[in-house]
């Protein structure tokens, strides 16, 4: 099992009010899974993704990633996991605006302490993989939204992580560009990458093999064999 989550809780305290963003989530993800997380706004999707991505720490509960219990790790160890095990794609791309596509994709490799030449080669490979081999020296403001998200995907891929996490990766894109990005995810999953993505849209979720629905911080359904697809 790649991910094993048991009774995961995240509670925010706003003054006297307690917000249970996650209220006892159990979830297992296998290597090679293609999982869509759905649910209404405020149901805890992003909170769950951030916990899986080790960007945030839970209030309580168990999270085992690749056989390693994540709860209780310190900042340095979490940084290491974010660097090696996880590739995160954000709705708002989150690229460094003053850096070229190549430099953005190299970023995780810098923190992996790889030598410059190797960084460059791997980053170029990743950009090639997402179809941006001819845009490597462009800065984000010289790229379209879809191209920016491709750069972000390349950055998430470049370290060959165990899992790709994407929180509404098509949320800021038009439907045509969304389809292109989803085709890329399909492709990546077909070649063995484990993918968890959050979406509001059924036809995006339809790309996945499995759909988990959240409501008020709990899993309310977990369906396998999604209404997929026109995949080659």
């Amino acid at each position: 099992m790649l991910i094993s989550i048991t009774d995961l809780r995240k509670t925010y305290r706003m003054g006297s009010v307690e917000v249970r963003a996650l209220d006892g989530v159990d979830l297992e993800v296998e290597a090679g899974d293609y999982l869509a997380v759905m649910g209404p706004s405020g149901s805890g999707k992003s909170t769950l993704m951030n916990l899986i991505g080790c960007l945030d720490t839970p209030t309580s509960g168990e999270y085992v990633l690749n056989g390693q219990a994540v709860s209780g790790l310190d900042d340095g160890e979490l940084a290491h996991i974010r660097n090696r095990e996880i590739g995160f794609v954000f709705q708002t791309f989150n690229l460094l605006s003053r850096a070229t596509a190549l430099a953005n994709v190299e970023l995780p490799l810098i923190y992996a302490r790889l030598p410059a030449s190797k960084r460059r080669r791997l980053a170029l490979d990743a950009l090639e993989r997402v179809g941006l081999g001819d845009r490597v020296h462009h800065q984000p403001n010289e790229l379209s939204g879809g191209q920016r998200q491709r750069v972000a995907v390349a950055r998430a891929l470049v370290n060959r992580p165990s899992i790709l996490l994407a929180d509404e990766p098509t949320g800021n894109l038009d439907s045509r560009t969304s389809e292109e990005i989803m085709a890329l995810f399909d492709d990546l999953n077909a070649s063995g990458n484990t993918i968890v993505l959050v979406t509001h849209e059924e036809d995006i979720a339809a790309h996945a093999d499995r759909t988990v629905r959240l409501l008020d911080g709990r899993v309310v359904s977990d369906q396998r064999g999604g209404a997929r697809r026109g995949r080659s």
Binding site: G53, L55, D75, G76, A79, H80, R82, N83, R84, F88, N94, L95, L96, L107, P108, Y111, A112, R155, N159
Partner: peptide, 16 residues
């Protein structure tokens, strides 16, 4: 701040 967040998200340690 966001840049720092991005760097941390892709694996930067405090020391970095």
């Amino acid at each position: 701040t966001r840049e720092i967040g991005v760097r941390k998200a892709v694996g930067a340690r405090k020391g970095d």
